[in-house]
Amino acid sequence: MLFYAAFLFKITHMKKREKLAIIRQHYHNAITTIDSVNKLIDFVEEVLDLETEQIMLADSICSDDVNSIQYPARAREFLGPFKMGGLDGFPFTGLTGMGAFASHVPDDGAVFIYYGPLIGVSKEGVIGEIHRFGQTKNTGCCGAAKGALNKLLNNDIVPGNVTDLDYQMNSIEQILLKEKDRILNAAIPLKEATEVIYEAIDARILELVANTHYNCKYVILLGAILINSDYDMGSYNCPRRFEVIDLVANTRRDMLKEGIMA
Rank of each mutant, 00 (worst) to 15 (best):
A193Q: 01
Q174Y: 03
K19T: 07
N150G: 05
D42C: 07
G99K: 11
P239V: 01
D107S: 11
I22A: 02
L190G: 08
A262F: 03
M1T: 12
K178Y: 10
Y231N: 03
T52N: 02
G223Y: 07
I69F: 14
T12M: 15
C142W: 00
G85A: 11
M56N: 11
E129C: 01
G86M: 07
E51N: 15
F7G: 00
I61V: 13
Y236H: 08
I55M: 08
G120L: 11
I11F: 00
T163Q: 14
C216E: 11
G97Q: 03
V121M: 13
V47E: 12
A30N: 06
Y27D: 12
F3D: 15
K39R: 13
R240L: 15
P117E: 04
Y218E: 10
G86Q: 06
L79C: 09
A110C: 11
T32V: 00
G125Q: 05
A200G: 09
D108T: 01
R132Y: 00
V37M: 13
V244G: 02
R252P: 01
A203P: 12
A30D: 04
R204N: 13
I23C: 10
R252S: 13
G223D: 09
M233S: 11
E243K: 11
I175M: 13
L256P: 03
K217E: 07
R241Q: 12
Y4N: 15
S63P: 04
A200Q: 01
G128D: 01
A100K: 02
V162P: 00
S103I: 09
T212E: 10
G234L: 03
K83Q: 03
S60G: 06
E45V: 07
C141Q: 13
I201P: 07
I157G: 11
P81I: 05
A58Y: 00
C141M: 15
V244S: 01
G109P: 12
I260S: 05
A21P: 01
F43V: 10
N38E: 08
K10S: 14
G97R: 01
D35W: 08
A203L: 15
L184K: 05
I130E: 02
I205P: 08
A6F: 11
G223A: 06
E173C: 05
D166C: 05
T33A: 08
E51A: 13
G140L: 07
L40R: 01
L206A: 03
E207L: 07
E53L: 09
A148K: 08
N228K: 13
A187C: 06
I197K: 15
